[in-house]
């Protein structure tokens, strides 16, 4: 059964419609790539799936595990197992990464974790991402470099183990080594959870170490091409020219 089914979805900010009837299906265990030029609506789609109040759905619906979640708030969706890795993670002063993540984990699972078990898990996940353990006690994202912020997002992915992970431009602004580390984190998630990935990118470096099942190309708020991993290569070679302005 489809894990995520987006059915003819239109959405936008206030009066301006940014997505025009997007349809897309993701099943458990699959890796999907959403590509497209700047301003095509990639992030809008990611935010709308997560339930950002900034975007209003004007048509169509979103189904998750067969249930209509179009009207649900972001926290309800998170509890169902949807995760969004932010392109620009927000700095929250006064709350440590570790405390925050433990709160989120307890909130999602509905059970209290033993501090010791939690710390052990956290440490292991940080090692995968080659994060300095000192970051656990630092305020969430405050003063983190761009790379550390992205790693902190993947750390949350590894700890929260969602059913569906949407990664919004997780590779942007990272150097080659950091991309490798982040990719290793994503591979770890793949290995540990029978989840699904929807990777939003306009770059393909991050995809090199992953097996891509489906590629969707979005332009001007519409899906304009669908295919397998080969579509990524085609775009690498020719860019988006064939899809833009149609």
């Amino acid at each position: 059964m489809a894990l995520l089914k987006i059915d003819n979805l239109s959405a936008g900010i206030e009066e301006k419609e940014l997505l025009h009837g997007v349809t897309l299906t993701v099943s458990t265990g699959e890796t999907h790539v959403l590509m497209g030029p700047n301003g095509a609506g990639k992030s809008t789609l990611g935010y709308t799936i997560m339930g950002s109040p900034e975007y209003t759905v004007t048509g169509g619906k979103i189904l998750f595990d067969g249930e209509d979640i179009t009207e649900e708030s972001a926290d309800q969706r998170a509890k169902r197992g949807i995760f969004l890795s932010f392109q620009n993670p927000i700095e929250i002063p006064g709350i440590s990464l570790s405390d925050f993540l433990r709160n989120a984990l307890e909130e999602q699972t509905g059970t209290r974790m033993k501090l010791w078990d939690y710390k052990k898990q956290l440490k292991a996940a940080m090692e995968v991402l080659q994060m300095d353990s000192a970051y656990a006690d630092r305020d969430l994202n405050v003063g983190f470099s761009g790379g550390e912020k992205k790693k902190a997002e993947i750390l949350q992915l590894l700890m929260l183990k969602p059913k569906l992970a949407i990664l919004d431009e997780t590779d942007s602004g990272l150097d080659v080594d950091a991309v490798k580390t982040v990719s290793a984190g994503i591979a770890e998630y793949r290995k540990n959870c029978d989840g699904a990935l929807l990777i939003i990118t306009h770059n393909t470096k991050i995809l090199e170490s992953l097996h891509v099942d489906h590629t969707h190309v979005i332009a001007d708020g519409k899906i304009v091409a669908e295919g397998g991993a080969e579509l990524v290569d085609a775009i690498n070679e020719n860019g988006y020219e064939n899809y833009v302005g149609k």
Partner: peptide
């Protein structure tokens, strides 16, 4: 309190009140 910060915390499963309370507690740290 920025809406972005509230959404960020909510996307990790905290309801709106908790998200706001967490931001305020953080402010008071």
């Amino acid at each position: 309190i920025s809406d972005d910060a509230v959404f960020y915390l909510m996307s990790r499963g905290l309801d709106e009140q908790r998200a706001r309370a967490m931001i305020v507690s953080g402010f008071a740290d």
